[in-house]
C-alpha cells in the first residue's frame, strides 16, 4: 500500500473580535491509496471543516495537506465531493446534473461517450428510470444518489463525503450505504467520509478516525476496523469483533461528551 493522503499539522482558525477562534489545530492523518476512512466526532467538532479544507472549498490556515503527492490548493475535480445536502442544480434533470461535471472532466471525449458515462453511473446508483427528472421530483434519497453518481462519474482520484446520508431516514440511509459500498468496491477510490453514525462508520470504513471536541480539535484515536470485506449488513453484527469495536467508538464519544460537560461546569 502506498501513501496517498498526507495531512500534517492542519489548522483552521477564524479571526474574531475576541482574538483567534481556533477550530482545528494539529490535525495529522495519513491514508493509503484505496483506503476508506471515516471521520467521526460530535457535531460541531470541526470534522466537516477538515473535509472542506481537503476539498479546497475552505482555506487552510496552517499546515499541509497532500493528496496524491500534490498540495491542496483550491477545489478541483480530482476530488469528488458529496455534500450533506444533495446540492443538485434544481433547473437541470438528473442526467444533466451529472453531465455538467462529465462535460468538464471528459472535455476530449465525444458527446456520445460523455452521455454514456453519465448514464452508466446513474444506472449504477439505481436511477435508470429517473434520469429525466428534476431534483424537485426526486426524493431526498434519490437526489443523494444523483450526488453519488455525479461524484463517481468525475473519475476522481479521491472521494470526500461530508455526512452524505445525514439527512436521510434510516432505511434510505442503509440503501445508500450499500450503493456507496458497491461503487467503492469496484474501483477502490481512496475515500474520506465524515459521519457521526457509529454503525455507518463500522460498516463502511477500514479505519475510523475519532476527533476530539473543539475548539482546537485534532485526531483523538484511530480504530482499525478488522471486519472482513465484502461486508454484509445482516451478517456484520454477528462477527465476534463487532461489538468490541463499537464499544471503543461509543466510549470515546462518551468521554468527549463528559469532558465537554466538565469544562462547561467549570466555566459555570
Amino acid at each position: 500500500m502506498s501513501l496517498f493522503l498526507d495531512i500534517v499539522q492542519l489548522k483552521k482558525s477564524y479571526p474574531t473580535k475576541d482574538g483567534e477562534a481556533v477550530i482545528v489545530e494539529g490535525f495529522d492523518l495519513k491514508m493509503d491509496a484505496g483506503e476508506f476512512v471515516c471521520l467521526i466526532g460530535h457535531s460541531g467538532c470541526g470534522k466537516s471543516t477538515v473535509l472542506s479544507m481537503l476539498a479546497g472549498l475552505n482555506d487552510i490556515t496552517d499546515g499541509n495537506a497532500l493528496v496524491g503527492g500534490r498540495e491542496v490548493r483550491g477545489a478541483g475535480p480530482d476530488r469528488g465531493v458529496v455534500f450533506q445536502a444533495p446540492c443538485l442544480l434544481p433547473w437541470l434533470s438528473a442526467r444533466e446534473n451529472v453531465m455538467i461535471g462529465v462535460d468538464q472532466v471528459y472535455a476530449h471525449g465525444t458527446a456520445q461517450e460523455r452521455l454514456e458515462i453519465a448514464e452508466y453511473y446513474l444506472a449504477r446508483v439505481g436511477l435508470d428510470d429517473a434520469m429525466d427528472k428534476r431534483p424537485a421530483e426526486l426524493s431526498l434519497g434519490m437526489q443523494q444518489r444523483v450526488g453519488l453518481a455525479r461524484a463517481f462519474a468525475l473519475a476522481p482520484r479521491m472521494l470526500l463525503l461530508d455526512e452524505p446520508f445525514g439527512m436521510l431516514d434510516s432505511l434510505t440511509r442503509n440503501e445508500l450505504q450499500d450503493v456507496l459500498l458497491e461503487l467503492w468496491q469496484r474501483d477502490r477510490k481512496t475515500a474520506l467520509m465524515v459521519t457521526h453514525d457509529v454503525d455507518e462508520a463500522l460498516f463502511l470504513a477500514d479505519r475510523v478516525v475519532m476527533m476530539t471536541n473543539g475548539p482546537r480539535a485534532r485526531v483523538g484515536k484511530i480504530l482499525d476496523v478488522t471486519l472482513p470485506r465484502p461486508r454484509d449488513r445482516a451478517k456484520i453484527i454477528e462477527y465476534p469483533g463487532y461489538y468490541p469495536l463499537r464499544s471503543v467508538l461509543i466510549s470515546f464519544l462518551e468521554e468527549q461528551e463528559n469532558a465537554r460537560d466538565d469544562t462547561r461546569s467549570k466555566a459555570a
Binding site: A55, G56, L57, G74, A75, G76, P77, R79, G80, V81, F83, A85, C87, L89, W91, L92, I100, G101, Q104, V105, L154
Partner: peptide
Amino acid sequence: KDHLNVARVLQLSRFSTVRKIVIPSAL
C-alpha cells in the same frame, strides 16, 4: 453557495459558471 461550490469543484471557468450556474439560478 452550494451551487457555486459545485462550480468550484468542477473548476468551471468564470464564464461557464455564469452561463451554467448563475444565470439559470437567477432566471
